[in-house]
Design a protein around this nucleic acid. Structure first.
Lengths: 263, 263
DNA sequence: CAGCATCGTTCCATTAGTAAAACGACAGTT
DNA sequence: AACTGTCGTTTTACTAATGGAACGATGCTG
């Protein structure tokens, strides 16, 4: 976060707010607590400012400080926003019964995710009833380029849009099948568009298969994606491109139809 | 939010951050979208500042603006924080199987909540399998003074602590049984301490019965509360003070014992 | 179709939040 | 025990964020 030049993008950004939120987004991925100096180093901010930001976050219960008075952890105020947001998503409400039925029909774990920048965020899930089931939680984030649900959310993007989204950022490789260039991703997207759905060949995790389809809103744009997942041993290639894909596509279009009525 | 005097409490508060977070906490309770002028009025902030705060929140996906470019709604960035927070609570992990068993044993909806200022926040829930079940979601907030789970979380507070917490704020009345003064609340707390648990006589919602017990951490302090709830028709007074209260107390102390081992 | 009101956005002088230096306290090291 | 480094906290000169005025656009109202 070196002093960025004044562009049309950040001209009206309030630094204090952005930095305070930046502290919150440090947490996650195993990092459950930070000390003030750690935060200062991570964000390259002056110690004195981190001190004041933390006081503010603490006073509003967005962070709490441990008994040692040194380590800060996330606070309960975050729960308000997160779940208010979920409640505000008509989409999730609508999708809930459809996803549940999809799970029951296929016997596999079903999920819905939306896109946030270059990540997808799980907003709903129904784990398979079998002993080995999907363990992703609501709120889990995965990179768009490495997941078929991610690809579904950028289903209809043009070349300029795609370049604006991914810019020059490198594509992290998760498995040998992960696309590592924008061109490779575009090639996959072209196939997806023809089919109208996508089947995972271990782009993100080896040994896990998935089928995903896009969800449209009333205006026709892609607003989310759904999928079903299972370990490879539980599904065969035949079914994936047959009855299984039909079930996923049918569920996706049912959610889309409901959303179209809402507006 | 009239210009507060400089006290030891707010001396190091960063206004921009506090106000930005203030915008986020406007959402909730049915208010799913706001325009910039609405926010400015609600927080009595200058229009120009609200404009910049919204730009900042929007750039970080904490809010999103609708198609009409006027209405702002919550954004997906909030999900990250909310679920990171839940994941950071060892308590929830530990409680999960115990609450599930409590639900299955009693046939009623079981919940766990923690306290945030004068509110309790639901952090875990297992709805009863019956058709009419508890509909509170994780993240739901209720006032401490009007709920038995709330009373359990202030179980061991002394008089000064209680007065510091509630100050001169009025006690909202939800049912005829809701305590409306600090003294009335103290009287109920005294009974709670003797019993070690609490039974709802419709303090918060008429027609709904509940039994709650406090959860302690290794240090012995109250860190959460659990309860079971059902519509009155589903449970009888006898069972509430008998087998039912035993089940809740046993579950609470089991969670407490697990927490003690952790540290 | 004026007239008025309110919107989003921009500009700029001024104030208010900040960065740096400094303090006292503590922990580890020589 | 003195030294060195780092911590949380406080103070203050100064820079940068701010609030008010103002602009053009839009949407009512009579």
């Amino acid at each position: 976060m070196t002093d960025a030049p004044i562009t049309s993008e950040n001209r009206y950004i309030v630094p204090a707010l952005a930095q305070g939120l930046g502290i919150l987004s440090l947490f996650g991925g195993g990092n459950r607590s930070f000390t003030a100096p750690e935060i200062a180093k991570a964000l390259s901010l002056p110690r004195t400012k981190v001190f004041r930001l933390l006081q503010t976050l603490q006073s509003m219960d967005y962070v709490r400080c441990g008994e040692d008075k040194r380590h800060f952890t996330l606070g309960p105020a975050l729960l308000r926003g997160g779940f208010e947001y979920l409640a505000s998503l008509d989409m999730v409400e609508v999708a809930q019964p459809v996803l549940q039925r999809l799970r029951d029909e296929t016997g596999l774990s079903s999920h819905m995710a939306i896109r946030d920048k270059r990540e997808i965020v799980y907003v709903s899930r129904f784990p398979a009833r079998s002993t080995i089931a999907s363990s992703v939680n609501i709120g889990t984030r995965f990179p768009v380029h490495a997941t078929i649900m991610g690809r579904m959310t950028i289903f209809e993007m043009g070349d300029k849009e795609l370049e604006a989204l991914f810019g020059d950022q490198p594509f992290e490789r998760f498995t040998p099948q992960t696309p590592t260039t924008l061109d490779a991703l575009k090639a996959l997207l072209a196939e997806d568009r023809k089919r109208g759905y996508a089947v995972s060949q271990a782009f993100f995790e080896t040994g896990v298969s998935a089928i995903a389809a896009p969800v449209h809103d009333g205006a026709g744009g892609v607003v989310a994606a759904i999928n079903v997942t299972a370990v490879n041993a539980h599904i065969d290639e035949q079914a994936m491109h047959g009855a299984l894909k039909d079930a996923v596509l049918e569920a996706a279009s049912e959610i889309s139809r409901w959303l179209a009525r809402k507006n």
